[in-house]
Nucleic acid binder design. Structure first.
Length: 784
DNA sequence: GCTGGACATTTTTTT
DNA sequence: AATGTCCAGC
């Protein structure tokens, strides 16, 4: 029998060599797989790498690295191990270590929870790189996608049907508006927005309408909220719909009411990992705690200093109190930063150390100090924007790429003046965020049609489109339909279908039945045609496209709608089960169009919030001013709020790798008011030794006059850089008059070819005389 | 039922 | 400044 100590130290050395690209702290996090673990991962500390390798370790080697278990064949293994330690490459070490594995977990027993689809996607990709095929079985996804997966199997226990729909904030708002009206509460007593917020907050805290009513006491407002909440919940249920918060809350409910179901999942998941734990709300942390109860093999990763979503219900307390909730939790701090130069870190540390409620961390780096932080005062935002552009231009002239730069602002409202300057200076840029694709009116309308086609009892979506385009079916009629539906306990759609039967609807019965027929025809169409065909049929047959064509800004909306056809086509090609309802399910949890992450060379403009997790060689922060950053609403900022603003500043500063510019103007125009503003207090918190104040060398007169630039020249804006056109050379382009072959419709002649959103819209007359409009990227056309 | 003009509103937003 | 929402009058 071989010496246990020798075996284990050899094994340890092998592990350290295999994970040699990690620093000791990172390695410790990777090895500590049993028991609760909190990884406090500072900005740029290699968090993703740690998570991916920790999961790989769990699956490949189990607890081997931290266990002194001696396998039976240890004496045979040891020489092999010693030899591999001396001469082996990474792959060979891996094979040897696999032989030493101690209870490695099957991939499907690992649950990895993220907040964004983007993060989930990144994890999946990187896990696939390290683990290959088997990575597919890991449960990696967002809180919402994982809960939806669970609910689709069990929600019938709660009285919903398993094919439930998911309502977004907009749908919910509509529903609440209706309810407030019905209950005669009045918008002034309870604005829809406050109701929505209050209900959402309740759900984030896993509280039911009854809980809220109980606690409301004599408070009129809270009482009204509770009443609305109650009805809202009933209404959602009868529409068989969940809102975003329900997805989490009802999973909690399912687990509370059906312990056998919970046990099933508790047994199933041996290892749980939660990313961005500082962004969890109480409902989510409850859920984790329920699932982790068995072995408490739960690892949460996050950074209390980067908690910037409290307005969405996230609570720093989850991460601050982790070691209280999970007894004997191990805490590992990742403080070595691999991203930023020394001075930038000193600035970041200087800012964040003013916060009181934190776990405490200090980033350090082996990198040199680098440049000082550039602080510059300008008179107007036009000058500020121009300064940014000029600086970028100079650096590009010296060899930088446009994509090395980011401009990060506190509020979207700042993007306008920046955009104006970028257009004027002809610098390529891309604005991230703002209005998102699936939130656009035209997209929501078409999706509403598709939802109604898939499920006619979806009354909220039905209301949305019943009179869009105009069909002379007004609010009074719709209200009548709604009350008839409630009275007779049928869906609104069935009332519409049988409009003739109801006396009250006599006058509009023809219009209503026409509408019902339209929906039914489209529904039949969808059963015999592909998804993109259905989408495009909806756009045409409902008259929606014609309506857009007549609108003033209709062209862009038309492009968006056609983009939706493209995304349906993409889905049809890639999804396992490309049905209409699957498509809608997928979109419900997706916030923006994928593939819009640009790899083309342009400057990134975005809010600090959306920059979290990203890095850029050079970062500009315009509007680093009191009142704007930290932002102050009319109410005085509480300490809590200031601390969150400070964390936001910390996030902003730590995005920069080499250069950081903090800009402020004396004179800022915001929301139609011009105000004098002082430099941000956060600037004073940065050690002056790492700062460089640039004097304003410009005289204020003529310069700023010239920069008063009319932003109405949006023609230019849209032409050049605004929408990065996907440069695709893969698809052949056809001119008017050419004869083409379509796989389904056969031979046809191109009547017109209109470039559109990186694609070409063709109007083609086919041999049978029909004229179709098709998108080039998806039509699979061939030259004849 | 539709339209136009008054009126308010304006942080951040992973799902 | 810019955009969405509401309501009165047609």
């Amino acid at each position: 029998m071989c010496d246990k100590a020798v075996f284990n130290s050899t094994k340890k050395s092998l592990f350290d060599k295999y994970f040699g690209f990690l620093n000791p702290k990172q390695r410790e996090a990777v090895y500590s797989i049993n028991g609760p673990l909190l990884v406090l991962a500072g900005a740029g500390s290699g968090k993703t790498t740690v998570i991916v390798n920790r999961i790989a370790n769990i699956i490949l080697f189990g607890n081997s690295a931290n266990s002194d278990f001696l396998p039976e064949n240890a004496d045979i293994l040891l020489p092999l191990m010693q030899n591999t330690l001396k001469n082996g490459n990474s792959a060979e070490i891996r094979e040897v270590l696999k032989k030493c594995a101690v209870e490695p977990a099957e991939p499907y027993r690992v649950l990895c929870i993220t907040f964004t689809n983007k993060a989930a996607k990144e994890f999946k990709e990187r896990l696939a790189q390290t683990l290959g095929e088997s990575a597919r079985d890991i449960w990696a996804g967002t809180f919402h996608s994982i809960c939806v997966r669970i609910l689709r199997r069990h929600i019938d226990l709660l009285g919903y049907s398993n094919d439930f729909a998911i309502y977004d904030t907009d749908d919910c708002k509509k529903l609440i508006t209706e309810i407030i009206k019905e209950l005669n509460i009045g918008e002034s007593a309870l604005p829809v927005k406050s109701a929505l917020n209050a209900i959402s907050k309740a759900k984030e805290n896993d509280r039911t309408a009854k809980d809220e009513l109980f606690d409301a006491g004599k408070d009129r407002f809270l009482h009204n909220v509770a009443r609305v909440y109650e009805v809202y919940q009933t209404r959602l249920k009868s529409a068989n719909a969940l809102d975003f918060d329900d997805i989490i809350m009802l999973t909690n409910r399912l687990f509370d009411l059906y312990p056998d179901v919970l046990n099933k999942y508790k047994e199933h998941f041996k290892y749980i990992l939660v990313d961005e734990y500082q962004d969890t709300n109480p409902s989510q942390s409850k859920l984790v705690s329920k699932l982790a109860n068995n072995k408490k093999n739960v690892c949460v990763v996050g950074d209390d200093d980067q908690s910037i979503y409290s307005f969405r219900g996230a609570t720093v307390e989850n991460i601050l109190g982790f070691d209280r909730e999970y007894q004997n939790a191990k805490i590992i701090r990742l403080e070595q930063n691999y991203r930023s130069a020394g001075n930038i870190l000193k600035a970041a540390n200087g800012i964040i150390e003013n916060n009181v409620g934190r776990k405490g961390k200090e980033l350090w780096t082996e990198a040199p100090d680098g440049e000082k932080i550039h602080i510059k005062k300008l008179y107007t935002q036009a000058e500020e924007a121009e300064f940014i552009c000029e600086t970028i231009r100079e650096k590009v002239a010296k060899g930088a790429k446009y994509s090395d730069f980011a401009v990060l602002y506190r509020v979207n409202a700042l993007s306008n003046s920046l955009e104006t300057a970028f257009v004027k200076k002809r610098l390529p840029y891309k604005i991230f965020g703002g209005l998102r694709f699936y939130e656009r009116r035209e997209i929501k309308d078409i999706l509403a049609y598709l939802s109604v086609i898939a499920n006619p009892s979806d009354s909220v979506r039905l209301r949305r489109i019943i009179n869009v385009p105009r069909r002379a079916i007004g609010d009074t009629t719709v209200d009548k339909i709604a009350s008839l539906a409630t009275e007779n306990d049928v869906s609104m759609f069935s009332v519409i279908e049988n409009a003739r039967v109801y006396q009250e609807l006599k006058r509009s019965s023809l219009k209503l039945e026409n509408f019902a027929q339209l929906i039914n025809e489209l529904s039949d169409f969808s059963k015999t045609h592909t998804l993109p065909e259905t989408v495009s049929q909806v756009i045409e047959k409902t008259g929606y496209r014609v309506m857009l064509a007549e609108e003033e800004n209709g062209i862009e909306r038309e492009e968006n709608v056609l983009e939706l056809v493209s995304s349906a086509a993409l889905f049809a090609e890639t999804a396992e089960n490309p049905t209409l309802s699957e498509f809608l399910n997928e979109l419900a949890l997706v916030s923006d169009l994928d593939g819009y992450e640009t790899d083309n060379d342009s400057v990134a403009l975005m809010t600090v919030h959306s920059a979290k997790g990203l890095e850029f060689p050079t970062v500009f922060i315009p509007g680093f001013e009191e009142g704007l950053f930290p932002i102050t609403q009319s109410s005085f900022g509480s300490d809590r709020e200031i601390e969150e603003e400070r964390r936001l500043a910390y996030v902003a500063v730590t995005r920069a790798k080499n250069s950081l510019y903090l800009l402020h103007t004396e004179n800022r125009m915001l929301y139609g008011r011009t105000e004098f503003r002082r430099i941000s207090r956060f600037c004073d918190e940065i050690p002056q030794s790492v700062c460089e104040h640039h004097s304003k060398e410009q005289k204020r007169s003529a310069f700023s006059q010239n920069t008063a630039y009319s932003s109405s020249s949006s023609g230019i804006k849209n032409n050049i850089w605004n929408k990065p056109k996907p440069e695709k050379a893969s698809v052949e382009v056809f001119d008017e008059g050419s004869v083409v072959m379509h796989p389904m419709f056969g031979k046809g002649e191109v009547l017109s070819a209109t470039p559109m959103g990186g694609d070409v819209l063709y109007e083609i007359e086919f041999a049978n005389g029909s004229i179709k409009r098709l998108m080039g990227n998806f039509a699979k056309l061939k030259k004849c």
